[in-house]
Design a protein around this nucleic acid. Structure first.
Lengths: 250, 250
DNA sequence: TGAATAGTGTCTTTCAGACAGTATTGG
DNA sequence: CCAATACTGTCTGAAAGACACTATTCA
């Protein structure tokens, strides 16, 4: 078959019924994986689905998210930011799209597509307490201990894998810290996300060889030698390192 | 505001109208960026939109793609594979999701979400000619010379960036080659995608230090020294290298 | 023999890993 | 002084960059 001789008009924008738009549309959702470091652990925000509704999975834990509102959301990331604002009251400092999951069977209400984002919060930005229908759950391996609604365990696993992979060669963990931090703080954030220790000397050399941070004329005092405080030179910008941290073990 | 006290039911699966599904749904599409190396260039497959329809962008060039068919497509990647089969008659050897683009303004027919995939084809797999409504266009920088319908230039740029970035540390270009190839062929594919020369010795060392390829007991004859032929040890599997090819220039 | 491409060897550079060492605070 | 954490220096090894060198075919 010659290329281009598709048997159905498969050109983008051509519908199953040519020119018409009266075919069934999938449900469109956005789900957000909110990461934070709490108690020296990587944790993720979960919300409980209403127990008394006729929605699926009543009372189950799920990722925050929901349907795109075509009236309110200008685009997908605005929808994700809205979901996050509604749940936590804060504007996302770092929002990254992980990917989309769509199919016939992932939601009993019909063919659905969800686009998953992840967000990194510093512990300082989440001073408020949790209401009853939300809770933090520690990340264990690629997920959480409790069962999740829909295919949210799959979505969460994808987000965790993306986070861990990207932490190997980017400055992502900086978004888990307050505006001013020490290099030890930063190394600690890396170690929590990667769940393995890093070598101090190499870590410092590597961070300081980039333009990621700049010192602020302050030091953190304590029961030991004070530490230099740093801030991001370009807040909100991600820095890429030329190599991963530990070359994969053989 | 305490976390979790969202003012609207923002739990996943909760609609703008609680429990009901009678709100407006976005259009859901899939678009596919088909890459191949032709004439020592990286090229991408474009299709022409019908000129005589009342669809938007009549007669314009676009990425192959279109609406999800909830009756036929089990999931998003099946939809992408179907679009590709319809257009080229071949099953995708390597299909990767690039990301989703959704918003109010990207399609005049309404709020739409498209999920973009890219595919790598070997020149050998596309022996058939092109029909009038399809053509290959060389990739220049992050796009093609001709104007594209919708926001397809943005989608294409995202796919090109993803491809180039991932080629730095994976075996992706192997999918642009036939089943049996020489190391020079492979290096050539890398150089075409990355648009820069690679050093032969380092390239060979690197490839042969992995389990990516295994020699086949054949050699390619020519007007010079014959070259050892190799094949993928695990066809369809992507191999990750511990480092990028040339550490980014400073 | 020479052109052309295949393939190897060798030196250098870069940077992470390991780890020991020094520095600076409070108690 | 000691404990504790911050920070630096030094050696090593792995892998890329540069580049010259050898190898094998056809014409």
């Amino acid at each position: 078959m010659p290329i281009g001789s598709g048997r159905k008009g498969a050109v983008s924008g051509t519908s199953p019924r040519r020119g018409a738009l009266d075919f069934e549309r999938p449900l469109v959702l956005v789900d957000v994986v909110v990461f934070a470091v709490r108690d020296d652990r990587l944790e993720v925000l979960l919300v409980r689905r209403p127990a008394d509704s006729n929605d699926p999975y009543p009372g189950a834990w799920a990722l925050p998210g929901g349907f795109v509102d075509v009236g309110r959301d200008a685009d997908l990331s605005a929808c994700a930011a809205r979901k996050l604002r509604d749940k936590t009251g804060i504007d996302p400092p770092y929002l990254e799209q992980v990917g989309s999951f769509g199919g016939r069977d992932r939601d009993p209400r019909g063919w659905s597509v969800t686009t998953v984002y992840f967000v990194l919060l510093s512990a300082q930005s989440i001073v408020g307490g949790l209401s009853d229908d939300a809770s933090w759950a520690p990340v264990d391996r690629e997920g959480v201990a409790r069962a999740l609604a829909f295919d949210h365990a799959v979505l969460l696993a994808a987000a965790v894998r993306r986070l861990r992979a990207k932490v190997e060669y980017t400055s992502l963990p900086a978004f888990l810290l307050p505006a001013e931090f020490t290099l030890s703080d930063l190394q600690h954030a890396y170690e929590i996300v990667l769940d393995r220790p890093l070598e101090k000397s190499a870590f410092r050399t590597r961070i300081l060889s980039t333009t990621l941070v700049e010192p602020v004329p302050k030091r953190r005092e304590g029961a030991n030698r004070p530490a230099q405080l740093y801030r991001l030179r370009d807040p909100g910008e991600l820095v890429y390192f030329p190599r991963t941290f530990n070359p994969p073990r053989d």
